[in-house]
Design a protein around this nucleic acid. Sequence first.
DNA 1: ATCGCAAATGGGAACGTTCCCATTATAGAA
DNA 2: TTCTATAATGGGAACGTTCCCATTTGCGAT
Lengths: 358, 358
Amino acid sequence: MGTFPFAIVINPPACILESSVPSHPTIIDVASEAGVSKSTVSRVLRGDGSSVREETREKVWAAVKRLGYEHNAVASSLRTNRTYTVMLAIPDITNPFWPEVARGVQDAVEEHGYAVVLSNSDWDVERERRFLRLAGRNRFDAIAINPTGVTSAELHATRIPTVILGVREDYRDFDMVGSDSYGGTIQALEHLYSLGHRRIALIRGRHRGARGRARLAAYEEFLSAHDLPQDPALSVERPFDLAGGAEAMRALLALDTPPTAVLAANDILAIGAMQAAHQAGLDIPADLSIVGMDDIYSASTTNPPLTTLAKAKYEIGRQAARFLLDRIEGKAPDVPRRQVIACQLIERSSTAPPKVTK
Amino acid sequence: MGTFPFAIVINPPACILESSVPSHPTIIDVASEAGVSKSTVSRVLRGDGSSVREETREKVWAAVKRLGYEHNAVASSLRTNRTYTVMLAIPDITNPFWPEVARGVQDAVEEHGYAVVLSNSDWDVERERRFLRLAGRNRFDAIAINPTGVTSAELHATRIPTVILGVREDYRDFDMVGSDSYGGTIQALEHLYSLGHRRIALIRGRHRGARGRARLAAYEEFLSAHDLPQDPALSVERPFDLAGGAEAMRALLALDTPPTAVLAANDILAIGAMQAAHQAGLDIPADLSIVGMDDIYSASTTNPPLTTLAKAKYEIGRQAARFLLDRIEGKAPDVPRRQVIACQLIERSSTAPPKVTK
DNA sequence: ATCGCAAATGGGAACGTTCCCATTATAGAA
DNA sequence: TTCTATAATGGGAACGTTCCCATTTGCGAT
């Protein structure tokens, strides 16, 4: 991104940026202003149920207003050991999947007065580790993470309540919330089957982790449930990007009898596949049906719009936050919880019955 | 998003989540472990240039390792009045424009040991105000914001160094970094002109702020520079979403002499317009050229891929962070700075010479 | 040996809260 | 009126650093 020319324009308006300042008044200033003790001010400010006369309460608030007092969360944290801050660590903020999750986390957590620190590792494990250390140093109250390299042990070592985003067998003793890739895959395949497709390909993304495996398992399960032949050529694996999807599609089209429908492990692959199919002169969905997964924004803007398996991204974020919050408050059971959220098939226009060419 | 059915699966693995804990050792524990004073430990830990014997230094580090000491940033902040935290406040994290900016901010800021707190207001002013208060309470060191409703005065009131994301005349006494919408618009229009288009429409997004205005101004400037007629029907304004773009397009196509080319104020509008044009049976780019703005991910996945005016999103984030960092360190001039980054035209396949129908 | 000076280290106060416990005001019962 | 129980308030310690200043140590010059 360094290719952009810069144009610097310094404009000199007649104004000064910083006025010299009476720095933050403290609770003690408020106390003497209101003619009470700092303890009382603290009580009023925290607004806990402790008894303080209505009259005093008003005096304190008046003093707060008059002085423009602003609570110091740092000092408070030092004493209480609570920062009301949650770390959200994800591998790639640029992937449209995550911002939606982030929004869910933030919305939920905010209702309880927490803030979210966003950490984007860009798939760099070392960076992910740094984030963990950051969370420790800053005494964050909780961590929500989609781990890319950091181990279960490292997460434990932070001693911070943690929830895993995504269903991952290798982090089994943490709370976990993800979507039901297995069930979703079956659902998508059944959709294609019910349209009449019998020769259905699977394009998987290349990555470790259970996700791809869940899909493959579901695929095989589906085939055998319907007494369909297990043709290994119909299951291809490529890197998780547009080019990977396109390449996979070309490989499938080169087959003696190409599939009439394709399920891709995510929308990016699906869109790549669609592009390749178009280039090969195919009409979608007449000649070929394509189903994606995730329902990222782009899925609705392709031509034709992509039929896809939507994941409850926002809901995943919210639920993860809920898990964290009650762990923080000690309201969680001692045993890890796991929530698997069902996917939802969004039928758009990239699927149709196969052409009867016989 | 509440429409998803839930499937709760509690799995009870034989393991305990929390072990009862020797809570965090402090600098004092380290001191006595190493047989030195806490002052010395602090000196070593901070690693400033102050003189401490190499041997002592090693003793301290050894003790740190042995005890598993972890620096307490909260206590440190209380004393130093620095939190090494920056707030990034944006209106809509779901808009693919912002994550890229966020990545830029984070990358730059992280190099200096800062963390970023992400605040997504969802266009809610009240929420935006809450974020400002949060920044104050938590003594964040800086704020990067694309303001949606919060006034310049309110920003000043935080007393926190602030940079405005985007070029906005109504916040002139802050540092500011954005892209050159005016120049970019001209650039895009010239592109269409040079292809041979003479009847070019502008689809603007409905929103206050200078952005739309810069584009309109550029549009009018362009028309008069080329002695093209100012046809008010060719400049339409709609909400900033797919539907808005589609509606705008339909309005344009309903004209007696529709435009041969369209420039949309952002990619979302452009894609909406493209969908409407397709529905009307037009072939893009043969019958109609379309140019978008921003270069969001979807722009590359449409069919045909969208020609668009790329903004240096990542670079905007980085530069904003740089502005902030040197304000924090007091290295910035007393006068607000402003950086306007040029746009770059990405020619894909949604533009072509107009059909010669005469 | 002694002195002087810089380098190395130590001790305490401060940052602004919250928490605990002690003290004082208030009101109801005797 | 006195006593008692409770409500309301106050005072100090603690949280874990950093910063300032004082003290000690080391070492070369005398």
